[in-house]
Amino acid sequence: MVQQVLFIQGGGAEDDYVADSPLVTSLQQALGDAYAVQYPRLPAEPTPDFGRLQQIGNALSVLPSGSMVVAHSLGASMLLKYLAQRSKPHPFAGLFLLATPYWQGNEDWKEALKLPADFASRLPATVPVFLYHCHDDEQVPIAHLDLYAQQLPQAHVRHLPSGGHQFTHGLSLVARDIKLL
């Protein structure tokens, strides 16, 4: 049986789907034929959260039990927000979060993106969480990884020396972690 993996794109612009396509290709190649990476297009909507909460909910609702979820950048932070707001957890086998922004500040535009203060306690306790971030990320500072690591002490934290925001060296490390579960 083929293991299902959902990849949630980053960004809130139309071209972000295309920008994250190399990540999906890298992940599928590293995982091999025993895994099927699903990559639904999440169009930017004119809402404060870009429509991501509803879109993520729709994508998760069709996943079979035991699936893996990989999310990049804005998609990763919105996945966390979606899961923190749900009363019934999804039956995932693992969450793999890449270059996740930790939204802070009092700007109005950030309010729809910020996580609740107690988000960590609302996540499914039995689901392994993996956090990945490149030290040379030009869009999301590496300090955001440390903020998540403090909130999620049970998470497996992966510091990568290089690769930028788009993980230009590929996602073989993510694939290895997925295969180990």
Rank of each mutant, 00 (worst) to 15 (best):
G12C: 11
G94I: 07
N106E: 13
H159S: 03
P116A: 13
P101W: 04
D33P: 11
T126L: 04
L53T: 15
A84G: 10
S77Q: 15
V37P: 07
L180T: 08
D49Y: 09
L180S: 13
A13L: 14
N106A: 07
A155I: 00
V70F: 08
E45L: 15
V62D: 03
P116Q: 12
P116L: 12
G105V: 09
F167L: 05
H144G: 01
N106L: 06
E14L: 12
D16E: 13
G75S: 14
L147V: 02
P89E: 06
A71V: 14
G51I: 10
Q3H: 09
P40Y: 07
D16N: 15
Q151V: 00
A34H: 14
T168Q: 07
F119W: 06
L98D: 04
R41V: 13
P141D: 05
M68T: 13
L23M: 15
Q55E: 07
Y82I: 03
V140L: 00
H144S: 02
L6I: 13
L147H: 03
P91S: 08
L160P: 00
Y17E: 09
L123H: 02
S61T: 05
V2P: 01
I8R: 07
K179I: 00
L171Y: 01
V37I: 10
Q139Y: 08
A84T: 09
W109V: 06
S77F: 06
G11S: 10
S61I: 05
P89A: 10
F7K: 11
L113S: 06
E107Y: 04
L80F: 11
G10I: 12
A112D: 12
S162P: 00
S61N: 12
I56K: 07
S121F: 01
D16K: 09
H90W: 01
A19N: 13
G105E: 03
A84M: 05
S65A: 14
F119K: 08
A19Q: 14
L95S: 06
D49L: 11
S77E: 04
S172A: 14
K81P: 03
G11H: 09
P153M: 03
W109I: 04
G32I: 12
D108H: 03
H133C: 01
D20C: 15
F92R: 04
L31A: 12
V62T: 12
P116M: 13
D146M: 05
V37A: 09
Y39W: 13
A175R: 03
L63G: 09
Q54W: 08
V62H: 07
D108P: 04
R176D: 08
A13M: 12
L173Q: 07
A30W: 10
D20F: 13
P124H: 05
G66Y: 05
A117S: 12
Q166P: 01
Y17H: 15
G12Q: 07
L180Q: 12
V24P: 08
Q104E: 14
D16G: 14
D118I: 05
H159G: 01
A117N: 09
L131E: 05
D177A: 09
I142V: 10
P46F: 13
Y39F: 15
S61M: 02
F130Q: 05
E111C: 02
L97T: 01
W103G: 04
F92T: 04
L145D: 01
L53P: 07
V140H: 03
T47V: 15
L83F: 04
C134P: 00
